[in-house]
């Protein structure tokens, strides 16, 4: 399904084969990794990611949204996770508060750690991107969304998605060849 071209309120009967009746628990099991990946890359620390992950599935459970297909379910979860992560990260413009360690350096609340230095470096660089680029890169590379799919999810034009992809890639390249470890 291409979210961008789907008409809003189609009332036709949907063949059952397009949407499995899953219990919330089964939905969690199927989409946990996807939701958590988006949560992790859009919040500051592990605790916040945990919160966003839980709030997303709780919302799914409570609202029982009317879905037209599996693709639609996936899209609903993606959009809700992004919203939760945004709300949790607070929308204070460009400022964050973190605990103070010694000598005035910030001590980050517990961060998620990957297995290898390379993966952690990539994650660090990703987190250092402005959020607009980061979302597009995460959806493209981690969730295998198409450019059109991303445009639909974020309600922006395809050209904007492409622009953010290319800028995001360029910025990642910059960060990974030296910028991110400066200071």
């Amino acid at each position: 399904m291409d979210g961008g071209t789907q008409d809003a309120r189609q009332v036709e009967q949907i063949p059952e084969s397009c949407l499995e009746m899953l219990s919330t628990r089964e939905v969690v099991e199927r989409y946990e990794r996807m939701v958590y990946a988006i949560a992790l890359t859009h919040t500051r620390c592990r605790g916040d990611a945990d919160d966003a992950y839980q709030e997303t599935f709780l919302a799914y459970h409570r609202r029982q949204p009317e879905l037209r297909s599996e693709e639609h379910r996936k899209a609903w979860l993606i959009t809700t996770t992004l919203n939760c992560a945004r709300q949790i990260s607070g929308s204070s413009w460009r400022t964050r508060v973190v605990p103070l360690g010694e000598e005035g350096r910030q001590v980050a609340p517990e961060q998620f750690e990957f297995a290898s230095i390379e993966q952690n470096a990539l994650f660090g660089a990703l987190k250092a991107l402005p959020q607009a680029y980061r979302t597009v890169l995460v959806l493209f590379y981690f969730e295998d969304q198409t450019v059109a799919g991303i445009a639909g999810l974020l309600d922006v034009s395809i050209s904007t998605v492409k622009m953010r992809l290319s800028r995001g890639r360029a910025r990642m390249r910059e960060l990974l060849t030296g910028g991110v470890f400066d200071d």
Partner: peptide
Amino acid sequence: PAAPSPGEQEPAAP
């Protein structure tokens, strides 16, 4: 209400 298709208004965060 029908969950908005992703192209519409995002569902409000819980």
